[in-house]
Every structure is written in C-alpha cells, then in structure tokens.
Design a protein around this nucleic acid. Structure first.
Lengths: 218, 218
DNA sequence: TAGATTGTTAATCGATTAACAATC
DNA sequence: TAGATTGTTAATCGATTAACAATC
C-alpha cells in the first residue's frame, strides 16, 4: 500500500492532465510530456506508475485511455462516492452547495445537525437530526463523512461517525481528534493555512521572490 | 529564511501548546515536554527553535512567556492581520462568518463580488464591487487575500489582487494560477482532499489500521 | 559538584532524481 | 537495425532523529 500523500496527489494531477491530452486528440503519451504538463520529472512519473504496477510500452509510451481507467480505479473514481456532512452551519451549507464535488463524482447525499431550525428533509440535500446519522449511514452504506461542526462538538461527532461505520473523515474543526476505529482522518485547518501564508508573506518581505506553497492543483 | 512548510506548522502547534501549559500555571518548559504535547521528538523541537535563533537555558529549559512572544512574532500574530475575500458566494460567505479566524487575530475586513445582488456596503463585513478592490487594498494596506470565486474567474481575480499589491493569496479555486508578482499562493483544494481521503479509505479496506493523514492540528 | 538539559553534529530515513540497461 | 523510451537501480537531496559535548 502506497502511503505517500504527495504521490496520490500527483496521481490526481496525472489523471486531470490526461483528460486534457485526450481532449486534444492524443491517444498515447510519453512520461516526458505528462511530466511537463504536471510540473514534475519524467522519472517521477514512471516511478509513481511503477509503484501501482502501471506499465507502458518501451517505445510507445502509455495508452491514455487505459491509463485514465487505471488511475480512476486507484482513486476510487469509477463509482459515485456518497458523502455525508455533520454540521449544517455556514461552512457545512457552503459545502452542500459546492459544485466542484459533483464534477469529481462526489455526491453529498445528506447533512445532519443538532439544531432543529437547520433541518429540512426536503432540501435538494436533506438535513436530518444528528440522531438519524447512524441509521442513515448504515442503510445507505456511506463510508465518507465531513465534520463541519463547532470545535467542541467535533470529537463527539467523530465518535458517532465511527460507531455508524464511517471509514474516512474530512475534518474542518481545528482540533486533535482521538480516532478509535479503523478510520482515516484528513484534517483541513483554514486558520492554520492562513497563518502559514502570513508567515511566508512576512518572510518574503526581506528576500523577494515568487513562492507557491502547495503544488499547483491542475 | 526557513521555507519548510511543516516546520512553520509545527511552530503554530508549539505556540498553541504553550498557551495550554501557561494556563496550567507553568512558567518554563523543557523541549521534552513540549515535544510530547505536540507529538514530535525533543530533538525536533530544539532543531526548529535553533533555526529561528530561539535559545533556552542549558538546565532551565525555555521561558514560556518569552517563547510565546517570539513565536507570535515569527508567525506575524503580534498584529491584527487584515484579509479581504474575492467572491462572496457560498464558500466566501461562509468564510466571512467563520469565527475561528478572529480567535487567531485574523480579521476579514471586506469582500468583493461582480454580482451586484451580493453587494452590501453595510454588512458587518461589507461586500463591494470587484472594481473597488484595488483602491480598497491600497488605502487599507491589505497584504492577504482569499480567492473563492468560480474556477474560470480565478486567474483574473489573482491578476487584480497582484496589481492591487496583495502579497499572499489563499486560493480555493482548483486551478493552476499563473503568479506574475512577488506573491505567495497557498492552494486549498477541497475536491482533492476528499479524493485523497477516498484513496486511503479504499486502500485501507485491505490492510486495516488507523491512519491520520495530516498531523493533528492542536 | 553531580546531574540534567541544551544546541549541534553526524547518522538515518524517505522521497526525488539521474542514469542506464533492457527492449520495442 | 538504429534510435528512443521504459522500468529500475543507484545517487542525491532534504528533513528528521540520535547522540553527545558543552554547560548551567
């Protein structure tokens, strides 16, 4: 199992770049070209592929169609991914309306909130009581959840999700969560991202230049 | 200049942990204890500090108060950080109401949108026309901006920000942005974070265990 | 002083890159 | 075949960690 997060992020970028090459009418591609498109070395491309047992032709490069299928398979994109949200506040509501998830085959199927005024089982995306989360997750076999509840409620929410059988959580609460089950937690901390950015801006004032903190997300 | 993003993230965690120690009545601390609190090695703590010229006492450890001041200074937290948002849609509006920024000394002072129906100069946080961004940024000496506009508008928005003198951008558009000026761009791509999470969940189905993708954000 | 902790150097670890034999 | 590209091994690079001399 490959556990290098950067490597998986590159797979996503390879995939996105390949769709663009396909649109341009290409059917096969060399590691060289793909590397250029994504901004890495060709050795990196071949190494990443070999980690997943993807092979090309010694002289003909890689078949784009077959490559896209393989990458989508690795990334779990060959089936619709159903996701639930706990916390239908400002951030949760924004995520429910976020168009880019659907483009990527990710569908937010329901949200849950303790506040009755936030509930509405008839929204395009229904908002239920938090108590209904466990049954919903089990009935609909949901594996992925998003935590966008207030900080103090985050741990309790994670516990509920794990008990319900959630296997992966995108957590927006800036809290260290105790993870009891066999569940993957991916933390996104917006304050910290801004704090980090501010450091680099201040540090750059002295030594001018251009920096991109994260790799481009093609 | 230290350009290791992980190192800067650790500084934030040290700082947060130190506030907790201070609350508990401690006045000084050893690298050992701080390391435990943050989940790193004591060598890592001392190494990080030495990179920033922070020194302690050979036998007395580090003075918590002095350390907090120094870390806050490095992280730019000794002054209020004013931030503007371009794009007052779902995500932009949610960020405007996000309480955790203020806790961290980050204040969103204005938003800008091309859609006249989104505008309101009288909101707690005013929403102006995009054309007003440049003057506002110059008048108020803003250095940090957030891009939460639709994908296709992101590059144009960055260009406007750079022309206005913005030095750091938190970009939520899943686009590779061409960065002309001496501006730091920090990309946050929520689709990609979910995609990544889904990979790890699928990969774990085979080899069970507990994974936390990002370090805890204490 | 004896003991404990820092600050730094050297070793280790993991990820990326260069190089090249295999081969289409 | 000659030439070009893959797949993989070895070298490099950067970050983390272990170890320990300096010293309070």
């Amino acid at each position: 199992m490959v556990t290098n997060k950067n490597c998986i992020l590159r797979l996503s970028r390879y995939k996105n770049a390949l769709y663009r090459f396909k649109t341009l009418g290409f059917h096969k591609i060399f590691s060289d070209y793909l590397a250029d498109a994504v901004g890495v070395t060709s050795a990196q491309v071949r190494k990443d592929f070999s980690l997943f047992g993807i092979s090309g032709n010694k002289r003909g490069g890689y078949q784009i169609d077959a490559l896209i299928i393989k990458l989508n398979d690795i990334l779990g994109k060959n089936e619709l991914q159903k996701v639930i949200i706990a916390g239908a506040g400002n951030l949760g509501s924004a995520l429910m309306k976020y168009k880019n998830f659907e483009k990527e085959g990710i569908k937010i199927v329901a949200a849950f909130d303790i506040d009755p005024s936030k509930r509405n089982p008839k929204f395009p995306i229904p908002v239920f009581a938090l108590e209904e989360l466990e049954e919903f997750v089990k009935t609909n076999e949901i594996k992925i959840g998003i935590i966008s509840v207030p900080d103090i409620a985050a741990q309790h929410t994670l516990d509920i999700m794990i008990r319900a059988g959630i296997k992966g959580v995108l957590n927006f609460a800036p809290m260290q969560l105790k993870n009891a089950g066999d569940c993957v937690v991916n933390n996104v901390n917006l304050e910290l991202e801004l704090e980090n950015l501010i450091y680099f801006v201040n540090a750059m004032q002295k030594s001018a230049g251009v920096i991109t903190l994260n790799d481009p997300l093609i």
